[in-house]
Write a protein that binds this DNA or RNA. Sequence first.
DNA 1: CTGAAAGCGCTTACAG
DNA 2: CTGAAAGCGCTTACAG
Lengths: 335, 335
Amino acid sequence: MSIGTVSRVLNNSDHPVHPATRERVLAAIRALDFEPNALARGLSGRRTQILGVVVHDITDDYFNEIVRGIDEVARPAGYLVLVLSSYRDPELELDYVRRMRSQHADGIIFVGGGLQVPGHVDRLRRQVEAIEAEGGAVVMLAPNDLPWPSIVPDTDAGIAELVEHLVGLGHRSFAMLTGPDHLKTSVERAAAFRSALARHGIALDPRAVVSGGFERLQAAEALERLVEQGVRFTAVVCLNDQMAVGCLQAARRLGLRVPRDLSVTGIDDLPVTELLDPPLTTVRVPMRELGRRGMELVLSRLEERPFEAPTALACELVVRGSTGRVGRGSRKGER
Amino acid sequence: MSIGTVSRVLNNSDHPVHPATRERVLAAIRALDFEPNALARGLSGRRTQILGVVVHDITDDYFNEIVRGIDEVARPAGYLVLVLSSYRDPELELDYVRRMRSQHADGIIFVGGGLQVPGHVDRLRRQVEAIEAEGGAVVMLAPNDLPWPSIVPDTDAGIAELVEHLVGLGHRSFAMLTGPDHLKTSVERAAAFRSALARHGIALDPRAVVSGGFERLQAAEALERLVEQGVRFTAVVCLNDQMAVGCLQAARRLGLRVPRDLSVTGIDDLPVTELLDPPLTTVRVPMRELGRRGMELVLSRLEERPFEAPTALACELVVRGSTGRVGRGSRKGER
DNA sequence: CTGAAAGCGCTTACAG
DNA sequence: CTGAAAGCGCTTACAG
């Protein structure tokens, strides 16, 4: 019962092992509660079964929902998930990627990806190239400028639907709360809004377009400031739900009734949105599905089999109570 | 410039290295973008800087808030965090612990800990003993029957305050929604309620005590069933916030106004609670602090220094809008 | 101060 | 079918 034989049994190797020997090995493993050393395994060239997932912040429901989706596929495949919260700090993100290289992670999924900070993209690219060269699979789940495989939520159609909905309710003047400027997700969502509005001959008042940093509190302050400054609009479109939640709170403090005095919309469809009062009209991003499919893409690349599933996920409009006819309250009956 | 010298420079070893040599090594490291292999490091006996965190479900805000707290201390200490979602499945939990042993994780934090499933506790104990014997530090962040160091939220005083508050508002008949029976957290919170109520000579109607499994939807159904069955009570106390959120939704569907017709309370003080309508009266568990302190305990054990901070965290009552005088609406002004 | 060498625990050609 | 041995990339006594 040499160490080599034990290894063959443990790995269900093709190499033949006598059934009786196999039994003896298995019995010993059970008796000793033997657990092979994963470090030694990884060092001798095997897959480490470690996946790194780069998120912004695990307490942000957008990210933990996606991590959940990843986990749903990673666990049955035997993968351990390292959650790397970068808080959108390029240095920290890069540092984590280097650590993943050092750990010989089989894969990395960038969930928030797409920091357009000059210089950073190149350094990131170099690290990712090194990881890929060593057999790792890197995948992005957001719009980005890096040349790696991605699964991306396609919000354009949903945003167009949302604009139809709002225009149909009589809205003509809008405020828009954007995310960080260096985030491609924010840039693309903003562009989708502008072009959908343009189709109705509506242009955004530059003063009514402000960054809420994709954060709740920042968005609440931004809305309050707009109102203070006397900027006129009948609907605020927020480029994510977190900011829409902030707007709902700010509106309450300002004495504005939603949707009678102001319509508010988000994007993402976080689980909280239906608990709010009023519940939020938003564009649904299938977050768990995004995570699942991202992990499937990682696995298919590691196993070098083709990936058949679509790499863009449809996102549709979800109408709830936070949007209504201009000056006339909720479309779905007043309260 | 031997491999040994490089290692000494990399680890800032005590062993003397000539400054000029050190410089040459550092220059080469930079030039090659060299990243030492963490697996080889771990295999040769060094700390792996890997931490395993066992949670129930990363999309549950109770858990991701705690993971955030852990991360706040783990990251500056150079630790990588493996998030292990066990969904309260003993087999899965045990499997993850074995994997942690295999990975030579330096530490494991059980966040949800305390599954009182017969047999399981012993098997878990054996694994944890093996890990500790190999120099790992295991810590629990919930009440448990295992003999390992813990940081525990002390909700007893907060629950007593909550009962005072409700009794002060005139409530005498209560319903209680509990978590899973095999979870010590649920058992202890229930006991705290019973004894606080007993001090006022109030006993719970056995029909009014039902499990909501610590889950929102289950709790909503449970409340609807109680009302259907004609069980009488003026306040539902939920043993966590998730269930209280479910009750708020169910109450709305049932046409019960909170708090005029029914008072609802939770425990935890999740971030959502203040966004709800009405916002929730609850007992605040300092989740991030719990996570931070848990990681500090892990580090202090790894470094074999004494841990000075208290191992129980005070949890106080937070009064918001979901509780009011019996039959007379909110204590804080009607709407 | 520097380097050669053993050892960590696996996997996997290679020899038998 | 079994086992001895090289090798993965580090760390760390040990010798010089």
